[in-house]
């Protein structure tokens, strides 16, 4: 029984982290129909920005919990800047090109961001463990968990609900939905497509950076963390159904729980879990759990 509880908690913790690092990818695909490989680079920049801001903040000796706000600020700032630069500077020139080309454009942006982080922050690791440790720990089924892990759960949940509210309940969100369903008709109806695209991409970039910033306190921030995240985020989004936020949440939950179960019950399989879940889901539901079938154009 204890084991089940621990698996559930571990699965939830990992799932919330997975959702946090894949929400932005899902949002951007949903609206722009671009699989954004640069997501990994934005994640890394968010992590570095978050780590260096927390280090500076902690050195200043101010209110300790403010470090959490520092993470948020770093994510929003770096996401805003990079999102705008990448969309306005590069991506907008590729709208209407084949999806593969767009994917490769974002891959190129990813390569550039990888080296940019190296040039800006060097190759030595950054540590920002202060927020991770200052919240203390909680005991579940006889095992200590850092409260920070549960904070991630809250942040991920908040992000999910916020996005849902934004898309379903605001005027701009409805425009976004219209664009998702049919860009051409939306334009004909007077929707400013460019504005929808730049806003969505920037929001997606902020989410990617947010994932990075809130990961930073748990890890040693080193070059190459972006690559690891891309495949994970892709898997979550593909399992859930590309472009579906609900799907990303369910996909994250599924992968998180399966992986936690594997770690506790059959550690040998840990390496394969993500790909096996992905392959299994795609075999049964080729468009992912929440994928929508689109009208075919003859």
């Amino acid at each position: 029984m204890d084991k089940l509880a621990v698996i559930a908690v571990d699965g939830l913790v990992f799932a919330s982290w997975l959702f946090l690092v894949s929400a932005g990818l899902s949002l951007i695909y949903g609206v722009l129909r671009i699989l954004n490989v640069a997501h990994g680079g934005l994640f890394a920049v968010g992590a570095y920005a978050g780590a260096s801001l927390v280090v500076a903040y902690s050195a200043a000796g101010l209110w300790p919990l403010g470090a959490l706000l520092a993470l948020l600020a770093a994510a929003v700032a770096s996401g805003l800047v990079l999102g705008l630069v990448v969309e306005r500077g590069v991506l907008r020139w590729t709208y209407g090109r084949e999806p593969v080309m767009q994917l490769l454009v974002t891959f190129s942006v990813f390569l550039i961001l990888e080296d940019l982080t190296k040039l800006l922050w060097g190759v030595s690791p950054y540590y920002a463990y202060q927020p991770y440790q200052l919240l203390g720990q909680a005991r579940v089924a006889g095992i200590d968990y850092p409260v920070y892990s549960f904070l991630l759960l809250v942040v991920a949940g908040g992000t999910g609900l916020g996005l849902w509210w934004f898309v379903r309940r605001t005027r701009f969100g409805r425009l976004v939905v219209a664009v998702i369903h049919d860009p051409e008709i939306s334009v004909a109806m007077g929707v400013n497509l460019a504005r929808v695209y730049v806003t969505t991409f920037t929001l997606g970039a902020v989410l990617a950076a947010l994932g990075g910033a809130f990961t930073a306190p748990m890890i040693s921030v080193v070059p190459g963390i972006g690559v690891e995240v891309i495949v994970l985020a892709f898997a979550v989004v593909v399992v859930g159904g590309l472009g579906s936020l609900e799907g990303a949440a369910v996909g994250a939950l599924l992968i998180g729980l399966v992986r936690a179960a594997a770690v506790h019950l059959v550690p040998v399989l840990e390496l394969f879990t993500i790909y096996l879940v992905m392959a299994a889901v795609l075999l049964v539901r080729p468009l992912g759990l929440f994928g929508r079938i689109e009208a075919r154009r003859i």
């Binding site: 699965g11 968990y145 990961t215 748990m218 890890i219 992986r259 936690a260 770690v263 506790h264």
Partner: peptide, 8 residues
């Protein structure tokens, strides 16, 4: 990079 489940 993330070892939450392994630590558990």
């Amino acid at each position: 990079g993330e070892y939450s489940a392994e630590l558990s």
